[in-house]
């Protein structure tokens, strides 16, 4: 729960978090080391200095720490925890659904655990989708189209076997498809952060929502053009949001561009925990105002209502969360915990 300076209680769903193990003990090879090192470079280059973590803590943190950073010290009411396998880089995977689900079980009503699949697994991918639905009741998945696998250097949402997986998701009610179309974090094929495959998939699967994480950066312009044409395409603000600290004017331009093309109903807050912690992001976002000249130039405004939607209401809609009921439930839990 984020309490605004005027006392308003703002419902926050953190749309993008991770519970990973990138420690040297889990690294399978140089790629595992370089992967977590690159995340750490994101962390150090865009965090305020007082929010920096030591490297060892960043590589592997406990469930307690995550719970505390998100919900006790942090302002989140709920968090979507994404699964990322990277089994070619990490012995036990980077953050598998099993690891996430085990953590989530300890903190009732706080986490939404999303799955992941790789359509290049063919038939096994379909079986795995069934397994995740039956075992964990997933409502969403996170897909990395640029992930390496054997000789393959990536895949597209429009590949035939990807379409079979998406068809199954639609059938089973796994409606939220988070797609990583972001900066160079994952080894990329020639142009795996190209966003055009989203366009076709979104047209062909009207029953699914496509949440494009990192708003297609570094192809924000292409992404905006696609998103404006597809009613079921959303933008996740992870990676874009931390610029609110280091380059607030640029952030103003980016959020203005997104508000202009997508609108306030199509954007989702995400801290990308543990790359960044949510507290400072939410505080800065809530008090952020687009400078007058940029607001005039773009003809948009980041109103308090827009902020409420971005911070929680939009994700609540996509995941079928009854905000008032959830607030009451969490409130009750906190009171019980305090009484104990």
């Amino acid at each position: 729960m984020f309490v605004a300076p005027n006392g308003e209680q703002v419902f926050v769903v953190d749309g993008h978090t991770h519970f990973w193990d990138g420690s040297p003990a889990n690294q399978l090879n140089i790629h595992g080391k370089q992967f977590i090192d690159c995340f750490y470079a994101y962390h150090t280059s865009l965090s305020p200095p007082e929010k920096l973590w030591p490297k060892e803590q960043f590589e592997k943190y406990s469930a307690e720490q995550m719970y505390n950073d998100l919900f006790v010290d942090g302002p989140d009411d709920m968090a979507i925890v994404q699964s990322t396998y990277l089994t070619e880089f990490y012995k036990n995977g980077f953050n598998t659904i099993d690891r996430n689900a085990e953590m989530a079980k300890r903190y009732k009503d706080r986490f939404i655990v999303n799955g992941a699949f790789d359509p290049r697994d063919g038939e096994r991918a379909l079986e795995y989708i069934h397994y995740m639905k039956e075992t964990f009741g997933i409502k969403g998945v996170k897909l990395y189209t640029a992930e390496w696998k054997g000789e393959s250097r990536g895949w597209k949402l429009t590949d035939a076997n990807a379409y079979r997986c998406l068809e199954l998701c639609q059938k089973l009610g796994i409606t939220n498809i988070h797609v990583h179309k972001g900066p160079t974090i994952i080894p990329l094929d020639k142009d795996a952060f190209d966003v055009h495959d989203v366009d076709h998939a979104a047209t062909d699967f009207q029953g699914l929502n496509f949440i494009i994480e990192h708003c297609g950066l570094p192809r924000l312009d292409d992404f905006c053009w696609i998103a404006v044409q597809e009613t079921n395409v959303y933008g996740g603000l992870a990676v874009a949001l931390p610029f609110i600290h280091s380059r607030p004017r640029y952030f103003a331009e980016v959020i203005s561009e997104l508000l202009f093309w997508l609108g306030e109903d199509k954007l989702l807050f995400g801290s990308d925990y543990a790359i960044w912690t949510p507290r400072w992001l939410v505080e800065k976002f809530w008090s952020f105002e687009i400078p007058e000249d940029i607001r005039k130039e773009h003809g948009v405004d980041l109103s308090l209502q827009a902020k409420r939607k971005i911070l929680g209401l939009n994700a609540a809609r996509l995941y079928g969360i009854d905000v008032e009921a959830q607030k009451a439930k969490l409130d009750q839990q906190v009171r019980v915990a305090a009484a104990e």
Partner: peptide, 9 residues
């Protein structure tokens, strides 16, 4: 805006 953002990143 896209290019400047990438450049900063």
């Amino acid at each position: 805006i896209n290019m400047e953002f990438n450049s900063a990143l």
